[in-house]
Design a protein around this nucleic acid. Structure first.
Ligand code: ZN
Ligand code: ZN
Ligand code: ZN
Ligand code: ZN
Lengths: 131, 131
DNA sequence: TTATTAATGTTATATTATTACATAATGTTA
DNA sequence: TAACATTATGTAATAATATAACATTAATAA
């Protein structure tokens, strides 16, 4: 039950741009950059972003209101995501750790709530910025 | 090395209001509600929120741009936070689980990055909404 | 006291995201 | 195919969230 094979034109334009970037991108900076490709309004970008998040091609870094391409081939849907964020240079990396994802996916606490999704953001200083 | 003992007037007004609420509150809804107490501008609310987050009295739910009072007496600073969020009724509960917090605080991956902070948000359906 | 830091008040503005509505493209079923 | 439903688009307007800039006052420290 794949979610969607074919991306529409706008979705592809936005995805291409995000995939080329080495850093998280904000919606309006994407908008500015894809104007030459015919995308004119915020809503066109937000709609593409929503869909790309839904199918797991990109993830939203909630604490930064920014978007990154999924670097983890396993993420077919954005339902179990973890990132490490450098508070100095704002570099963001998707954490891909099987033990962690298993631990969190199976996590259950006293609330009796069954979780079907999580997002985890780690903060610290990256190798470069630690020096 | 306590961070701050004494809250200023604005900080106290905002904190009181958040503590009374059973649900996460957004900055502008706080602003609207504390106008009768002399707080007039967004920045006054945002400054109070910033400080309250910094000293761990409240936490920001990043995926919702909303704020909740800390329910975990251990949180002196907002550096290791976890929440469960009902995607139906938007109820938010602070997860207080020693094993989880130890696991995440000690987490290290191949990136070699040392984390000094994290925020985790679980999503699902709460007991009520599951019925 | 003097200097320094932290908080405040106020206005304006920047940034992020959605509503509303009309239209077009695509997929499904008969 | 025709009829219908679903999904995506285009466009304009506006809502919601957050910060910059600057003047002033209060609290702390030397
Ligand atoms: Zn991913
Ligand atoms: Zn860094
Ligand atoms: Zn707490
Ligand atoms: Zn619920």
């Amino acid at each position: 039950m794949q979610k969607q094979e074919h991306l529409t034109k706008n979705q592809q334009i936005v995805l291409d741009f995000i995939e080329k970037s080495s850093e998280p991108l904000k919606a309006y900076s994407i908008l500015f950059s894809v104007k030459k490709q015919g995308i004119k309004a915020p809503l066109q970008v937000y709609r593409a972003l929503d869909k790309l998040v839904e199918i797991g091609k990109i993830h939203k870094i909630e604490s930064r209101n920014a978007f990154v391409a999924c670097k983890n081939s396993n993420c077919q849907v954005s339902k179990a995501t973890a990132f490490s964020i450098c508070e100095s240079c704002e570099d963001v990396t998707e954490v891909s750790n099987l033990k962690l994802s298993k631990y969190l996916s199976n996590f259950a606490d006293k609330s009796g709530m069954k979780y079907n999704k999580y997002n985890l953001e780690f903060f610290g200083l990256c190798k470069n910025c630690k020096k």
